[in-house]
Design a protein around this nucleic acid. Structure first.
Lengths: 259, 259
DNA sequence: CGTTGACTTGACGGAAGTCAAAAGGTGTGG
DNA sequence: CCACACCTTTTGACTTCCGTCAAGTCAACG
């Protein structure tokens, strides 16, 4: 299997052979599989092995006292679930599997070393967590200032770009293994309204979504519908510093200011 | 002036004299003052000196093409504005002064050293950025799943706790130097609706807000009104590991599960 | 074939947005 | 000291987007 973490981090820096091998070795640690809806890391958990998603999909989730919940991030292959626990001491939210998901469990000692070294790899790891924050900020904009259809369109487009970057969406198709209710928990909408908006997006020929496979029919119009601006993803493909990313997602992130 | 950064970081670790002096020396770097509404750091800015808020109040802000904007964080004394730029290369949002604000400009070289050392101070700095993410996630919950009055109540309570921690809210009173419109930009509401909700909160005897001074009249009921749970702030005052924080904010963060 | 979970549809209600105007405050310059 | 402009807050009438509730369809599965 390709190394999704390596592919993701290549947005940030170019790695030489020894570093690539170091990153590959991270995947050799023991793995664990989770069924859909299983809790991967629970709120309150203290420092343990760090979970790196290899396949499937997970989400950061906060449960409210009244049973409602809010998903705050989708974690796809190459994403780290719980680095923050090293610094903050305990998780303040759950990581739940949306579909059947497998993770590598990177031993905490290895992770501790990675975080306290001063290598390019350390920096790449920090880059990954800062990028998570950047995505989170963009979601805030969506929740505060975008309507329901814009929010969904934006989310779909973001997922398309992120899947491209790890080589998992070559043909504008990606695995979206969740229910409409979970999509609502992420966007701050109800399942019913998600359903109605999805029908709009389908009717307008922007996306298809069948059998947990999302097909982006018209990327450019989807991008416009979500008022998507790629700068928050901090890709380096478009400013000439790296070729690999641009070959994977370059056509999705061009800065046409014509919207 | 007391060192708000030190006070804030004391939530995370206890510092010995040499580290305290190191933190104090950070405040000796050149300062700059900004007028209300001035842009402190602009979107797209590359790595420069790091801004640390000393007085006043600032906000992270994303402007949309149609003129709307979303504030994603309030920055109070002791908060760092732009550490992420070291890792992500460019700012993906603005930092704007809400009121007249002064910052220390920590030279990028000094900051670079701080971030790549392996000291307790480095870790505290990372703790600070991870905490920002944690607050952001909590805001997401608010935007997605809390109503307007809950959102405002939660925000006020959070600001109360944070001001307590830097010794700026001894008597349940804090400086809130912004307009209702800006409060709306932060909570995802319109200025008109913010106004109506504020009147509710006032009528119920929860808060007062005159002359840019917010007075929390009834902290416990405000906490309940915002469904506020303090765990996301990762304070260590309540679990017996530190006395300084609990003496500053302990009464605000007790875990009464009776709501 | 009955049960279950996900999706769909419709009627209705409500929280928050929109628009417009008035009222109150503040700083500036004549 | 007044007049003026400008901003912020407040209020009211109306609209709309999305939530709620409830029923119904459909496919998967034991």
């Amino acid at each position: 299997m390709a190394n999704p973490l390596l592919m993701k981090l290549e947005q940030f820096a170019h790695f030489e052979e020894p570093e690539r091998r170091q990153l590959d070795r991270l995947l050799d640690f023991p793995r664990r599989s989770y069924r859909a809806h299983e809790v991967i890391v629970a709120e309150g958990a203290k420092v343990r092995d760090v979970h790196l998603v290899l396949s499937g999909m997970a989400a950061r989730s906060k449960a409210l006292a009244n049973g409602e919940r809010q998903l705050m991030a989708f974690l796809i292959p190459g994403d780290l679930c719980d680095v923050e626990v090293f610094i903050l001491d305990a998780m303040d939210h759950d990581i739940v599997a949306l579909a059947d998901t497998t993770c590598v469990l990177i031993p905490s000692g290895v992770m501790e070393d990675l975080l306290t070294q001063s290598s390019r790899l350390t920096r790449a790891m920090w880059w990954s967590t800062m990028l998570d924050s950047a995505v989170l900020r963009e979601w805030m904009v969506g929740h505060g200032r975008r309507g329901a259809s814009e929010r969904l369109a934006h989310l779909f487009y973001e997922l398309l770009v992120r899947h491209r970057l790890i080589g998992a969406a070559g043909d504008n198709t990606l695995s979206l293994p969740m229910t409409q209710e979970e999509l609502g928990d992420a966007t701050g909408l109800t399942a019913v309204h998600v359903n109605r908006v999805l029908q709009e997006l389908r009717a307008e020929g922007l996306v298809e979504w069948r059998d947990k496979i999302l097909t982006v029919v018209d990327p450019e119009r989807l991008r416009a519908a979500g008022r998507f601006q790629a700068n928050y993803l901090h890709l380096m493909g478009t400013d000439g510093r790296g070729g690999e990313v641009s070959s994977r997602a370059g056509d999705l992130v061009s800065q046409t200011s014509t919207d």
